[in-house]
Amino acid sequence: MASKADSSNFAQAEKRRDTDHESFLAHKRMRWLKISAVLCLIVVISYFLVDVEPRHNGGTWYGYTLGTIGALLIAWLSVLGIRKRNISEGKWSLKAWTSAHVYLGLALIVIGTMHTGFQLGWNVHTLAWALMMLVIVSGIYGISVYAALPRALSNNMREMTRKQMVEGLAALDRQLDSAAQPLDRMEADAVINATQQDAFRAGLLARLTGSYPRCATKRALKAFPDGALNKHEEKVASLLRKRKSQLGQIRRHMRYKALLEVWLFVHIPATIALLAALTAHIVSVFYYW
């Protein structure tokens, strides 16, 4: 029968339903931004207050401390990829994780750089630092597109799913196919070229910029200049214009998705390389102690 556990479940669910919807950047009133800022402040102030001989570098007690904190942070930050995919029970929230990931990751700029004592060179240690900066920079790009693009993505969808967009295109193609029957050879070929061009075969550049200079639909439209069109041609031209606009929606969708995802192709491989370089850095440091 009803017990305390049930009412606490209710309380928990009520709390969940009560939560304001905040983005990962504003999670819990910027809790992780505050923590990271304090962390950075402590590191920066102590960097100038602590006097180590002969000068700041990774090999002093202070450098080791920062290095340990940094290495632990990197290890923990890279676990996000697993957290995201391992849907286990428990009160974790991926939004909280992302929030912490973002702000603690940014704090690494200060921690990692102070750890080097600005002694950079052509060696495995600097490689690790450079990879870390690469990961962070790609991450900053990620934050900015996550903040900026969702609205555009949503506006462009106009309540259509990806499947509906593709089906919309296929439906237009079927209509074009039958509407083009009475046309002459040259016009018909232009239509066939347009409908047969694979909308999804596009290079990385086309995807990211959204510009498709070799678009067969655009070219086909040129075969039907305004004025001087008979009834059949007018119908085909109008269908081609619809096709162009449908293609435009699909291409914009692909562009936003590509912009939202492309950085991960740097961020994640660079993270893996960073973990390798970090291991090499740590092993070599202790080997040559």
Binding site: I87, G90, L94, K95
Partner: peptide, 14 residues
């Protein structure tokens, strides 16, 4: 435990 997975697993709070 933890409640609806869709909400817990959203990385941005959407």
């Amino acid at each position: 435990d933890g409640g609806p997975a869709c909400v817990r697993a959203c990385p941005t709070g959407a």
